[in-house]
């Protein structure tokens, strides 16, 4: 048997192995997705009980003609990008510190201290943030004690709190990605920078940061997907007054039982995520082919 035939056969065997997974994704992922897309072109009456299965663009029209929706949509994007940005700004220096500054024996501990809180449920974490950020909570009393503020600042139930919640979540995701890259950076590259006349800052800017870009990209892509679709943080921390896309979707389900309209919000959310994520995917693919 030739090498090529062997390869083809082993690939076929691999495909058979992947079959159960493919069936699983088909039934529980692709079919529901298609169903949602189809649903978004149907319409429901005011009770939500009767669904008209005639093709219509009514839902999309009502989304794009309602200023309230557009504002919520833009707010979603704003909050998501701010959160991811906050994640990056925190994660990069932190992973630099863990990999290159903190002594070896403390590294595991610090990394664990950062990652463990994220083992608890997102809802429980959101409730703890509520306590921490509230007007009588530790943050405000701390700031007032040190005289940084005169009266409690309201962070909770504004999107500042949402951004803090989602931002720290993004930080964790970006951190694990940049950490694994920075750990793998050849120390002789940094020594080469020193040898050629550079300092610590040059090591960071010229070598560590540019080499970490793939990790930053992957981490922010993953967290952006979560931030755009998240419902818990904007509701429990952001207060739910200034609505975001996920809240609109839930509302149309809860108050109107309007499944077609909720599907429309889903499709719009999905398309938004795709628009932002596709360039990232392209970037990562290009990196893989060795560009």
């Amino acid at each position: 048997m030739s090498q090529v035939q062997k390869l083809v056969r082993s690939e076929r065997r691999l495909m058979i192995g992947a079959l159960p997974m493919a069936i699983y994704f088909l039934i529980f992922f692709l079919f529901p997705l298609i169903y949602i897309i189809i649903n978004s072109f149907w319409s429901a009456d005011s009770t939500g009980m009767v669904i008209d299965r005639a093709f219509t663009l009514k839902n999309y029209q009502s989304f794009f003609t309602n200023q309230f929706n557009i504002v919520a949509y833009l707010r979603t994007i704003g909050v998501s990008f701010s959160s991811v940005l906050m994640g990056i700004v925190l994660a990069v220096p932190l992973s630099y510190a863990i990999v290159f500054v903190i002594p070896k024996k403390w590294k595991q501990l610090v990394l664990l201290a950062i990652v463990t809180p994220f083992w608890t449920s997102f809802i429980i974490r959101a409730f703890s943030w509520q306590l921490f950020l509230s007007e009588g909570g530790p943050l405000n009393s701390f700031l007032m004690k040190w005289g940084l503020i005169n009266q409690p600042i309201s962070i909770l139930y504004t999107h500042k709190a949402t951004i803090i919640g989602l931002g720290l979540f993004s930080m964790m995701i970006v951190l694990v990605n940049t950490y694994s890259i920075m750990v793998g950076i050849d120390r002789s590259l940094l020594e080469a920078v020193s040898d050629l006349g550079g300092g610590k800052w040059d090591q960071f800017v010229e070598v560590i940061l540019p080499l970490s870009v793939p990790g930053i990209v992957l981490g922010s892509m993953l967290s952006l997907i979560i931030c755009i679709g998240d419902y818990i943080a904007p509701t429990l921390l952001g207060g739910g007054v200034k609505t975001v896309l996920s809240q609109l979707m839930i509302q149309s389900l809860k108050s109107g039982f309007n499944i077609p309209m909720a599907s429309t919000y889903s499709v719009i959310m999905l398309l938004t995520i795709l628009i932002f994520v596709l360039p990232f995917v392209k970037y990562i693919k290009r990196g893989r082919t060795g560009e």
Partner: peptide, 17 residues
């Protein structure tokens, strides 16, 4: 510091950026 010496080192794995 390495940068304050009149030396330059060539690494085993070249350490090219």
């Amino acid at each position: 510091l390495p940068s304050e010496r009149d030396t330059s080192i060539m690494f085993q794995n070249y350490a090219l950026f």
